[in-house]
Structure formats: C-alpha cells, structure tokens
C-alpha cells in the first residue's frame, strides 16, 4: 500500500469513527435511547455507571480522541505527525479495550455502536503502527548523469 493510500484509508476510518462517537455523544446528552438492534443493550451500556469517567462521558472522550487522530493525519506528514497519530491511536485502542472489557465482564451487555468504534480504533492503531515504523519515504534518486566530457572539458581547461 502506498503512503498516500495508507493515509487516506486512515482519514476515512477516523472520519467514520468520528461519526459514531458524535452520535453516541449526542445520545448521551439528549437522553434519547440509541438506535440498537440488540434490544436494550445499547441503552444499558449508555446509562451504566461506566458511561462516564471522572464525570466526563466516555462518548465525549471518544469524540475528542477521533478529532485528535484526524487532526494529526491532516497535518503535514513528518515524523512528529506520524508519532502523534500513533500515540492517539494507541491511547484510543487502550481505552476501547478497557470499555469492551467493562461491557463484557461488568455490564454484561454489548453496544454495537461501541463495538464498531472499538473495531475502527483497533484497525487505526494497527495502521498507525505500520505507518510509524515505515518511516520516511526513501529519498528520490536522480538518474545517473554521465560525467561531462569533450567540449565541456575543453571549455574548463580553456578557462
């Protein structure tokens, strides 16, 4: 995959994740039940005691995380911006892993919106690691130029 294609893929994924997190944040503040095919699982997760961390809704944290990832991807590509994407993606993946653990072992309900965000974040993290370890593109090698000879050499010697 070319560097450009990789970056565009990550931007698309981060945008989709941003959409999911925006919806969950809206649902949290509006108090309306989330659209969910798995019965009341989403509502149970959304209204559980784990839906906030230190008083901040986890959906809002996800939204901020995706904005940070997207901003680092849209910034001019260099070692620093790749590192920033990596750091945000690993933090997002760790947080998603924690929330998935809570869904499975504490709340005993899985919210499909949260699961899709966790899947997006996992793919983003893997791509960010790959992109970071690949590093800079190799420098452009100019075609070999044959040393000047003949008239140019004569010109040099004449001067």
């Amino acid at each position: 995959m070319s560097r450009r294609a990789l970056r565009i893929t990550m931007i698309v994924l981060a945008t989709v994740g941003l959409g999911v997190a925006s919806y969950l944040t809206y649902v949290h503040y509006s108090g309306s039940p989330p659209v969910c095919t798995a019965g009341g699982s989403c509502l149970k997760v959304q209204t559980s005691i784990y839906s906030k961390l230190a008083g901040v809704p986890v959906a809002l944290m996800g939204l901020i995380g995706y904005i940070a990832i997207l901003a680092s991807l849209l910034a001019p590509e260099n070692e620093t911006s790749r590192f920033a994407t990596l750091a945000f993606a690993i933090a997002g993946f760790g947080f998603s892993a924690y929330l998935t653990y809570r869904e499975l072992f504490s709340i005993h309900a899985v919210c499909e919106w949260c699961a899709s965000s966790a899947a997006i974040m996992t793919i983003l993290m893997l791509l960010a690691v790959w992109r970071f370890l690949r590093g800079e593109a190799p420098p452009y090698e100019s075609p070999h130029v044959k040393p000047a000879e003949g008239p140019q050499a004569a010109h040099v010697s004449a001067s």
Binding site: P33, G39, L43, K44
Partner: peptide
C-alpha cells in the same frame, strides 16, 4: 430483564 427499556 435489566435490558428491558420499559424499566428505564
């Protein structure tokens, strides 16, 4: 039953 939206 905890997932039943009727209780919420």
């Amino acid at each position: 039953a905890r997932n039943d939206p009727a209780y919420a």
